[in-house]
Design a protein around this nucleic acid. Structure first.
Ligand code: MN
Ligand code: MN
Ligand code: MN
Ligand code: MN
Lengths: 219, 219
DNA sequence: ATAAAAATTTAGGTCAATCTAAAAATAATT
DNA sequence: AATTATTTTTAGATTGACCTAAATTTTTAT
């Protein structure tokens, strides 16, 4: 049984290793958890003893299968709660994160099973992130940033890479949501910005940073 | 700002003082919290420093106004979550307690405001306990035990005193729920049991303990 | 009013989770 | 290859939340 704090560490380590990185470093963990490396050093020894990661001194850590399962269970809860908050309590997608960060630690298998059913077994959260099922299985997240498409392409927004309030609120203003259709009208070579059309709205310019953080599916 | 553990202590102290008791004793608190009196002694000094209770050595504690407010906020959350679990996630009234015990500590004023609205601003929880509003105001809980009514009386079940699974499941079997009408057909002097009729069902016998824990409103 | 019993507090210790400062190991540069 | 810089770990402290054992205070009974 993991404590709330241990769950947060494990989730962070799992996320850091998602990008294909084999070994996750102490400093990287300290960064996301917002603690000091010394504290991380302590904690990863504890998590190693508990069998959820493999740790070799000075070489970083790697999540074990057991650890992956535990991490995915927390992530599943986090994302299910986000869906609940947005679909039933009228939260906007930029307001859900901190609350889900707390709710993800509620321990009750029955609760999650029932919540999942209540929500209609959703496959993605409000940011387009996939929701693992009870066994930890999930579809991969769309990985294609809008930036990588060429002039004239047609695509649909499927997820966001950045989930900061600032970014999400900016998207709201533009009228860009999950499911919105995007057409690339013009790519500006100078600053990598582009002019796009969102659904049937009038054309708008978006910066390279925005385009990099919009994950789309081309049609 | 109170920690999860401090909130649990404060809630326990508040509940202990509800029966009109001025001073709440160390041992009584240790009993409900399931800790040792020595630990309680520690904690009540901390809660005193935080201003939520007044503590005088060897004389027990009393909740301050500030403490009452904090306790009621936790109780409000506990009961709102219980309503959610029963009305939307198909929990039965004997399954909600431990989960609500966790959920009551989630910190987000927005969440509670929205949850309350989503639930339709309920006034009582699944056990008939009143739900304080955002300001901590609530109607008193019905206090009349079925046991105290006389033969031939007609009443409606409004709340339960005991909320243990064992008791609640027993009530389910009998068909006794909040809102069920009860008619007292016969009171047995020997063991204080009684024969009653629940709504239109066939008569049943209930023990004195059951009758003491059913809170009713006479018609 | 004393003595015995019960309740409460204090002393001293443990464990989880953090920190700062110092030491050790690894990586990067000259 | 040697020096410097960076990363990581260890040592030692602190705080919250607990515990047991011992001391103290209050209550109850003789
Ligand atoms: Mn969290
Ligand atoms: Mn999300
Ligand atoms: Mn609780
Ligand atoms: Mn209740």
């Amino acid at each position: 049984m993991l404590s709330l704090v241990e769950e947060n560490y494990l989730k962070a380590i799992y996320h850091l290793s998602e990008g294909g990185k084999e070994q996750v470093s102490t400093n990287a963990i300290a960064d996301v958890i917002r603690t000091k490396p010394a504290s991380v050093s302590d904690m990863i020894q504890r998590l190693d003893r508990k069998g959820v990661i493999n740790y070799t001194k000075y070489q970083g850590v790697k999540v074990t299968n057991e650890g992956k399962e535990a991490a995915l269970s927390v992530i599943r809860k986090h994302r299910l709660w986000e869906v609940f908050l947005v679909e039933h309590l009228n939260f906007s997608w930029d307001e859900v994160h901190e609350v889900a960060e707390q709710l993800e630690h509620i321990k009750s298998p029955l609760l999650i099973e029932r919540l999942d059913k209540f929500l209609g077994q959703p496959k993605v959260d409000p940011h387009g992130d996939p929701i693992p099922d009870a066994k930890g299985i999930f579809r991969a997240k769309p990985q294609q940033p809008l930036q990588h498409l060429s002039e004239g392409s047609l695509a649909v927004i499927r997820a966001v890479k950045d989930t900061s309030s600032a970014f999400l609120q900016h998207l709201d203003k533009l009228g860009a949501h999950l499911g919105t259709q995007v057409k690339i009208l013009e790519k500006v070579e100078f600053d990598n910005s582009m002019q796009i059309q969102l659904d049937q709205s009038p054309p708008v310019f978006i910066s390279n940073q925005v385009a990099e953080n919009l994950l789309v599916q081309e049609k």
